[in-house]
Structure formats: structure tokens, C-alpha cells
Write a protein that binds this DNA or RNA. Structure first.
Lengths: 361, 361
DNA sequence: AATTATTTGTGCGTATGTATC
DNA sequence: AGATACATACGCACAAATAAT
């Protein structure tokens, strides 16, 4: 036996694997016969067979009895598992069904299945998801970042994805450290800008804002709010902005706001992070004995199912959820096919006028 | 060579596989040596090796050089891919997010991922899904039958699932030919019975019904409707029942109903297949110049987000969507662990009183 | 600590069966 | 029909790891 290069069949297996992936041999090509290879490598036919059988089991070649061995398709378009992972923050949250539906309409058409995972919007949940996905057979990942404004300490997981040549892209939010990666985003700044501008144009003077502090969308919407104020030459007052964390969504912001309402603080309008928040704010306003939109105007964001409460329709921003999912899926498919993609797709928001804002000048 | 029993190594492989999964051999046990097996089966050592190598590649046994071959853990807790498929009719439909959320809360806790697929409520879509899933590495399937009342012509696919030892269960509906399989169902008959009984008790005399004809839920709800009438000694009139197919959800039933409303047919109340239908029926009633509940009472089913329209709250049935998902997932986990499960879990419905029905005696 | 028997791993030779071209 | 190529099967030899002595 050959002692210097280890196992003979192993060496042959590696050599053949390289040839299969080289430019010389193509999908469908016929390999030399077992006897020819045996002669070429100067080993017995059995040793050649051992190497070939391993390659066959891996799916790179297939044998046709009486004819020969051929290079399979899969060797070229390698390991098409047909699975694409979709990692979201919440599954039961109000926009997810449409986004999934959009992603699915494109992917199932292309013959892919969706592996659905969620992070509970926690960093540890996202790490767990990614680690789990690294052990699975997947062709790509669509990720909605969790707590996207907090420091990214799991970049190594994304590095490993790239090492394994698994394409991924972000939707909805972005990590500071991953700005150069592919993102499909709403122009959240522009959305909040449009809402605030609308309030200013309809004569509101004391416009409060309530934003989520632990994701990039909250930051962006806040920026749009501030830009609209500054463009209109209005003072940006930090005391008019309330920040909240995902965790205390149920407690802090509303009591604090309610107190302000009760204390007859000068408030014209409230720009809310999203429709869900707007509903709570409206409730707080009504509990304080005031009414919407007569006393205080309220805007939402997302045009979700929350945007209609009884006969009150929120002035809000349409979130083209289904379209976002479609674009994300189409982009990922291109990445899988190694085609060039736009690293940053921005979806323009559109203002939806309801009756939750006072419209007199 | 042996011509009667096919390939020798294949026969030995099968025989050993059965022994490995039998009660006699356990995880960690040492297999007889190659020479001993060769003697026992009266074949050469090479033939034994061929069989053993196949089993090793499948992960049922592992070899320790110089020591022997042993039965691996995975042979017992076999092939934990960690993936469970969830096949639904529609993804964007109104109840699924909650069902998925319920399934996921149990499965992700147990370390499983969800592969999400949908059939568009078509038989061909379901066949495509199942065929695709048969090529994938999955540990179990939760299926919502599509067009569940139509003839089942793809039972062979379910047979193959059993052949591959992939457990599966049905939620929401059932196939006639699969009655003995595991089902997690709402008691749809009871739900419609409760609604109809409520209408009867509140003095309604001419109660129409509108049901979906192409799934088992429609049949069941219709049965509950009929049972309530017959128990109350009221006449069951086929002309008071409108059947529709999924495809013509948008056209037929409402125009037909609207005509009846316009023609001043004696109609007291309409028992609707679900909330979505109820919304359309209410619209048809209003278009005919009548009002709900003053002229005609309407009931829904599912207590979905459609159940509140402006200040009208539908009298409907709560569909414990999240709980259904949880029970389905828990049951499937038991099936994966080969534990005994109740082959038919019926979730009792609960009546939700709204203001869409007249309540005078 | 060294020896030995056992067991798996590697490799070759040969023969025969059977599908393809 | 014959040549070629893969498939199955047996026998043998030696290497390398393990476990018991």
C-alpha cells in the first residue's frame, strides 16, 4: 500500500472530485471506464470503484449499468436543498402574514420551500436561529433583524454563512455593522416625514412623537419626524419625544403620555411609531377625557388591520408588505444564481389619509 | 450468485436493519464481527462489509477500528432532521397566522423548525406539496386538507409517508378515506348547532344557511344547522340553504341571496359558513335596502378580525386557533416519539354573542 | 509493558452476471 | 453477436487499532 499519500482510494476520490468541478469536465460528460481509470492511476479496479462509489453517494456522479458513469447536474448546481429560511421577529405580529405570503408566492413558484423561524425580537433568539440554520441544508436566508439598533455581537455567524456560501439578505431593518450587505427596506424616514409634514401643513403646532428605541426603524422614523419639523422651521423639542423599548410596550409610554394629557400639556398631535401604538395612544387620550381628532390628532404607520377602529380610520402609511416579500424573494433567488443584485432596495412609502387628524388650517 | 433472493448484500442489509430496530438489539450494542456474520450468512466477508457499509452510511451503526461495529444512537432516535412540515390551504387567509403561531410555540420549544407550504386549497397543489416533502428530510407533517370533501385520489402519497415512517396528522378538516388517521378538529357541527339554536331561541322562524360545499367543515356546519332545526321541530327546507364552491366565493352566493332579499322572501336570519361570508352577506342585505339585525339577523364563524365591522359585532363562534396549533404540534411530537395519541381530538366551540342578531322573543 | 488474538481497514485478483451500445 | 462497462461476489493478504492476557 502507499504510505506516503494516505489511502489510495481517498486520494483518487479527491482527484476526481476536483476534475468534476474543473472547467475540463462538464455536466453529463462520461467518465473514463473503471478499467481505464485503474490503468491510469495504476491501482486495481476495486480501488477505483471504492472512490467512485463514494462520489456517487455524494451525488456528484451517477452510474448507468452497461454504459458508464456520468457527471450529474447536481455537481454543477450544487446541493439544491430547495429550502430557504425566513427569520422574522414575531410570527403572530400583524404584518408577518402578508410578508410571508409575498415571499412564498415567488419562492414556491421557483420550487423552493420556506423554513420559518422567529427570534422573539431578541438577540439571543436570533443567534439560536442562525446556529440552528447553520446545521441545516438551506440555500439562502431572508432575515428581519431583531433589536436592530443594538450592538451586533454575532457577526461571526454571518461570516460563517458566507463561508458556507449561503446567501442572505435583510428586510425591514439593518445592522450598523452590516450596511454593505443586501437590504430590502421601506424608506421609514420618508414615511414619518410625510406624516409629520401633513400635520404641519394642517396647522398643528405641538406635535409629539413616540418611537421604538431598539430598532433601526424607530430611529429612521424619528429622523423623518425631526426633518419635517426642522424643514418647517419648527423647534425640535426632545421633551416632545417619547422613546420606548419593545419590552415595556405595554406600560411606560402610555402612562407617561396620559399624564401629559391630563396635565393639559399643549399637545396638538402625536406621531406614533406604528398603528398598534396609535391604538393605545388613542385609548389613553380618550381615558383622559379628550377626543380624536377634535382635541388631538394621531397618526399611525403600516396601514394594518388596526388602522380602522370603529368609525375612526387612522391617517397612516401604507406598508407594501406583500411587495416587500416578493422583492426580497426575487432578490435572494438572483443571489443564489450568482447574479448581480442591487444591494439596497428602498420601497417608497405612501400616505393614507384617514379621519384621525384634524384638517382645519 | 444467488438468483432466487436478489442481491445477497441487500438481503443481509435488510435483515440487519430489522435486527437493529428490533427489541433484541439496543443502542450501543456491539454487532457480531464481520467474520462471524460471514460465517452465519454463509457469504464472504466482503459481502458482509458491503451491507454494513450501507448501514453505516445511513447512520444506523458506526465502526470502531480494531474493536467492532456498534448500533448508533440515531438508530433509536432516528434521523432527527429537526424539520416539521406544515401544509395549509392558504397562507394569507385570516386564521392561519394564529394557528402557525400556536404550532411554532410548541415546536420551536422542542427544537424543531417549521417548513411552511400551502396548497392554494387545490388537490393538485396538495399533491405537489407532498411529493416535494417526500424528497426532503422531515420528521413529521401537519396537514390541513384541501378541498377535503372531494374524492381522495392521492392516498398513495400518504402510504409512502407511512412507508418512510414519517408521522402526519390532519387539522381543520378530514378526508373520508382517512378517517382512522389522527385528526385535530373543531366540532364544526356543534358550532353551527349552537348558532342556529340561539337564533331559534330568540324567535327566528325563517333561518337560511350558506355553506361551502367543497370541504368537510362546510358539511359539518350544515349538519349542525339541520340538527338544530330538526330538534326544534322546524322544517328543514333545502331552498333555504345555499351552497357555494371556493372558486365562486365572490360571485354566486351573494347575488342569489341579494335577489331573495329584494324579492321580499321571508328571511329572518342567515347562518353563514364563516365571518368572511357573513361580511359579504351583510353587505348584500344593506345593498338590498334592509338592515342588520333589525330586518335580518346574521351569524358568522371563527371570531376573526372580520367579526367587528364598524359598530356591528358578529354573533359568531370562537375558533381557538392558537390552541388548535398547540395541540396539533404536541400530538405530532408524541407521534414522533412513538407514544400513544388520541386519534381524534375535538375542540369544543364556544358561542360569542354580538349585536348582529335580533334578540326579542 | 509487551504480547497476542481479535476486529476493522485497505488493497488486489478473479470470476461471473447483466445492461448498453 | 460481440465488445464494453458496470454489478455482484468470493478469496486472499496485510495494515492498523483495540482489548484482553
Amino acid at each position: 500500500m502507499d504510505h506516503s499519500t494516505g489511502k489510495k482510494y481517498h486520494h483518487i476520490e479527491e482527484d476526481l472530485r476536483n476534475l468534476i468541478f474543473s472547467e475540463e469536465w462538464h455536466s453529463g460528460d462520461k467518465l473514463p471506464s473503471e478499467n481505464e481509470l485503474a490503468a491510469r492511476y495504476e491501482v486495481s479496479r476495486q480501488t477505483i470503484r471504492k472512490a467512485l462509489e463514494a462520489l456517487e453517494h455524494e451525488g456528484y456522479i451517477y452510474a448507468v449499468h452497461g454504459s458508464g458513469r456520468y457527471i450529474s447536474e447536481r455537481a454543477i448546481h450544487r446541493k439544491a436543498s430547495g429550502n430557504i429560511a425566513v427569520v422574522l421577529t414575531y410570527l403572530s405580529d400583524y404584518i408577518f402574514p402578508k410578508v410571508i405570503s409575498g415571499i412564498d408566492s415567488v419562492l414556491s413558484e421557483a420550487g423552493y420551500s420556506i423554513i420559518l423561524k422567529h427570534t422573539n425580537n431578541s438577540r439571543s433568539g436570533e443567534i439560536k436561529c442562525l446556529e440552528d440554520l447553520l446545521t441545516k441544508d438551506i440555500d439562502g436566508i431572508i432575515i428581519e433583524p431583531s433589536k436592530s439598533n443594538m450592538y451586533l455581537n454575532h457577526k461571526n455567524l454571518f461570516d460563517r454563512l458566507e463561508e458556507y456560501d449561503i446567501p442572505y439578505l435583510f428586510i425591514q431593518g439593518h445592522y450598523e455593522a452590516m450596511q454593505d450587505k443586501v437590504h430590502i427596506l421601506m424608506d421609514d424616514e420618508q414615511g414619518a416625514y410625510l406624516l409629520t409634514k401633513h400635520l404641519i401643513e394642517t396647522g398643528h403646532k405641538h406635535i409629539f412623537g413616540i418611537f421604538k428605541s431598539d430598532d433601526s426603524q424607530g430611529q429612521d422614523r424619528h429622523r423623518g419626524y425631526a426633518r419635517a419639523l426642522s424643514e418647517a422651521g419648527m423647534l425640535y423639542d426632545p421633551n416632545q419625544v417619547i422613546w420606548y423599548f419593545t419590552e415595556d410596550r405595554k406600560v411606560h409610554p402610555y402612562t407617561s403620555l396620559k399624564n401629559k394629557f391630563m396635565q393639559k400639556t399643549a399637545i396638538d398631535a402625536v406621531v406614533c411609531y406604528n398603528d398598534q401604538i396609535a391604538v393605545h395612544v388613542i385609548r389613553a387620550i380618550e381615558e383622559a377625557g379628550l377626543s380624536v381628532p377634535e382635541d388631538i390628532s394621531v397618526t399611525g404607520y403600516d396601514n394594518s388591520r388596526y388602522s380602522t377602529i370603529a368609525d375612526l380610520r387612522l391617517t397612516t402609511i401604507v406598508h407594501p408588505q406583500e411587495r416587500l416579500g416578493e422583492i426580497a424573494a426575487e432578490t435572494l433567488l438572483k443571489m443564489i444564481r450568482k447574479e448581480e443584485v442591487d444591494p439596497r432596495v428602498i420601497i417608497e412609502p405612501e400616505l393614507i389619509l384617514g379621519n384621525s387628524c384634524r384638517t382645519r388650517e
